[in-house]
């Protein structure tokens, strides 16, 4: 029996395939399932993705936001059933994969520039 294939098939059962692609620097709104008593509702957490790490079932990402003047970071397991959706609000233009430098910055300096979409090249007319 191929050991890696067995482990992959176990992970594949739980891996999400419908995730919207996002990267570090993007502003995302994470919809978290919260159970209160016997009711379930969605709680949103919006902020900048400062890192994505891991692969496979153990992958996770960190979202940072400023709440009431205090920096708040939450680490989400990417494939957790508790994460209902990760909606990309804004694409960020950054040069790093890990944006830990944002922790030292405040105010306007802590803002991530928005990525400008490059228009599709116009086909040359002969």
């Amino acid at each position: 029996m191929n050991k890696q294939a067995v482990i992959k098939s176990i992970e594949a059962e739980q891996t999400k395939s419908d995730l919207q692609e996002f990267r570090a620097g993007d502003t995302v709104k994470v919809q978290v399932r919260v159970i209160e008593g016997d009711k379930e509702r969605l709680q949103a957490f919006q902020g900048v993705v400062i890192q994505k790490r891991g692969r496979g079932i153990g992958a996770s990402f960190t979202v940072r936001k400023i709440s009431g003047g205090v920096g708040v970071e939450r680490i989400f397991p990417l494939h957790s059933p508790n994460i209902a959706a990760v909606d990309v609000i804004k694409r960020g233009d950054v040069r790093r994969a890990k944006l830990f430098y944002l922790r030292k910055l405040t105010g306007k300096a802590a803002k991530v520039a928005q990525k400008r979409e490059v228009a599709a090249p116009v086909p040359a007319v002969k």
Partner: peptide, 8 residues
């Protein structure tokens, strides 16, 4: 033993 992984 085949190996280790994680499940929810």
């Amino acid at each position: 033993k085949i190996g280790m992984t994680q499940v929810f």
